[in-house]
Every structure is written in structure tokens, then in C-alpha cells.
């Protein structure tokens, strides 16, 4: 086996809300969880480093406020990082830090090299536009101009995510939660990105709909060999999908490993608590 290069490499990513002070900006800062009691700065992500490999699903678990979603938003440039480096193999062969690129380059990365599925479909879709327009929007942003090609690709994707084509002109606001998530997945895939980011995509859906969305994600991963980062507070979802798993607490990675190892032989006290709480 040759030495594998990660398709995405994140080094020491930090995101803080607030300027920080002499209490919290030193190496062994005294914080209340990830919050500085002196200057009220919140350290949402602190020195997070991850590698994602081609074709794998990486799970990220942790309680609310652990920094999972901030990490995803930072990767998708919804949030500006405070510090850290990110390298994508498909962007200048991983030689340039994506976080220090111009707005134009970041838009290119976001539209052509990444796909994002939010927990709340309202963040990822324009609810009053037709589903087919929503999907075409990302293709236009990624550089497509041929209307016929875009329509064909959108229909192909709607078919792939099991949305009846006769409903392609309906806006997502007419759809159920599960269907809205499937339209989001179709949109995220429309520019053939090598990496898909999924942020709590099954939260709030009923069990049978959850199963169909998970099934769809797994099928897409198997057929397209796409790499995915799946954020969830639900360990059952992570067990079902992820090859490797990262556990976050108070903005930091506290444990990582094979998913079955994390679930059956958790090392950290917090991970043990999480696993013992699994129904």
C-alpha cells in the first residue's frame, strides 16, 4: 500500500468569538468549559486537526456546544477561522492554505470542491424556488452555463435521491422534512464535489425517514466514492455511517479512532459517558 495522502488536511483550526485576554490566551488558560470567565470570549474550536481520506466517511460526535457545527461552518467558509491551516488535494495539489485565499477562490472551493447539507434545510435551500432551480443554482455557481445540461443533471440527481421528477418544479417548502434533506443532498452533489459535509442531517426526522436518508448517504458514498464528514450527536448514525470517528468536547478533539473502537473501547471519560448513554 502506498503512503496515502489525505484529500483534506486541517491543521490547528481555531475559532473564537471575542478578542481574548491575558487570562485565556495563555497555553494553560483557566476556562469554564470553552468560555473565558474574565473577558467572555468563547473558544468554539481550539487547535482542531483532522485528516480526511478519499472515499472515507469521517464521523464527528459531541454534545451541543462542542464545536462540531462551528468546525463544519469553518470548512465551508460560513465562518471565518481565527487561525489554522487547511489543504485540499484538489486545490493546487494541497499546496495552498484554503483559509487564506481570496473571496473568489473561497467561492470556487465552496461551489466546486465541497458540498454542504445543513441540519436546517432553510440554510441550504431557497424554500420558495423550485427544487430544480435550487440544484441548478450550485451548478451555475460552479461555472455551468448550458441550460440543457443543467436540467439533465438536476433531473438525474432528483432521480438518484428518489424525488419524483413530476415534482421537480415544486418549491422545497411544499415538501416533507425528509424530502427537503434529499433535495439538499442533490444540490450538494450537483457540482460533483470530492467532499460532502453533512451537519446533523437526520436530526428532527422520524425514524423511517432517517433510515431512508442514511441509506441514501451510504449508497451515494459507495457509488461515487465521495469523501464525507458526518457530524451528529447521535451515535447510532455515526455507527451506521462512519469508518473513523472524532469525539469533540468544549471545542477540542478529545479522542479519535475506528468507529467500532470508539464505541466498544472508549478511552476518555466523556466518550465513555456518551457511549453508556446510547440506547
Amino acid at each position: 500500500m502506498h503512503v496515502e495522502q489525505p484529500i483534506l488536511q486541517i491543521k490547528n483550526l481555531s475559532k473564537q468569538y471575542g478578542a481574548g485576554c491575558s487570562n485565556c490566551l495563555q497555553p494553560n488558560a483557566r476556562l469554564e468549559k470553552n468560555f473565558c470567565p474574565v473577558c467572555k470570549t468563547v473558544f468554539a474550536c481550539k487547535d482542531v486537526s483532522i485528516d480526511l481520506y478519499r472515499g472515507e466517511i469521517l464521523g464527528i460526535v459531541g454534545e451541543s456546544g462542542s464545536g462540531k457545527s462551528t468546525l463544519m461552518k469553518s470548512l465551508y467558509f460560513d465562518e471565518e477561522v481565527t487561525s489554522g491551516e487547511g489543504y485540499l488535494e484538489d486545490f493546487h495539489n494541497g499546496s495552498l492554505n484554503i483559509f487564506t485565499q481570496s473571496g473568489q477562490q473561497k467561492r470556487y472551493i465552496r461551489n466546486a470542491l465541497l458540498g454542504m447539507v445543513y441540519q436546517n434545510p432553510m440554510l441550504g435551500l431557497k424554500m420558495s424556488f423550485s427544487s430544480i432551480s435550487n440544484i441548478a443554482e450550485k451548478q451555475i455557481a460552479a461555472g455551468s452555463r448550458h441550460v440543457g445540461n443543467m436540467v439533465n443533471r438536476s433531473n438525474e440527481l432528483l432521480n438518484q435521491v428518489n424525488i419524483p421528477l413530476k415534482r421537480s418544479k415544486e418549491p422545497p417548502k411544499n415538501f416533507s422534512g425528509g424530502m427537503q434533506q434529499r433535495v439538499q443532498i442533490a444540490k450538494a452533489l450537483s457540482s460533483n464535489p470530492p467532499i460532502l459535509l453533512l451537519d446533523e442531517v437526520t436530526t428532527g426526522l422520524d425514524l423511517s425517514v432517517q433510515a431512508s436518508v442514511l441509506d441514501l448517504i451510504k449508497t451515494i458514498q459507495r457509488e461515487l466514492q465521495i469523501s464525507m464528514i458526518v457530524v451528529s450527536h447521535d451515535l447510532a448514525v455515526i455507527r451506521m455511517l462512519a469508518d473513523r470517528t472524532i469525539v469533540m468536547l468544549n471545542g477540542q478533539i478529545i479522542e479519535q479512532g475506528l468507529t467500532d473502537q470508539i464505541l466498544e473501547d472508549p478511552q476518555h471519560a466523556y466518550t465513555q459517558q456518551l457511549v453508556y448513554s446510547l440506547l
Binding site: L258, D260, Q261, E264, D265, Q267
Partner: peptide, 9 residues
Amino acid sequence: LKSIYGTYI
């Protein structure tokens, strides 16, 4: 067995 398979550390 689980140590060989990598499930246990």
C-alpha cells in the same frame, strides 16, 4: 480477537 481486529486498544 477484538484486539487483533483493532476494536480494542
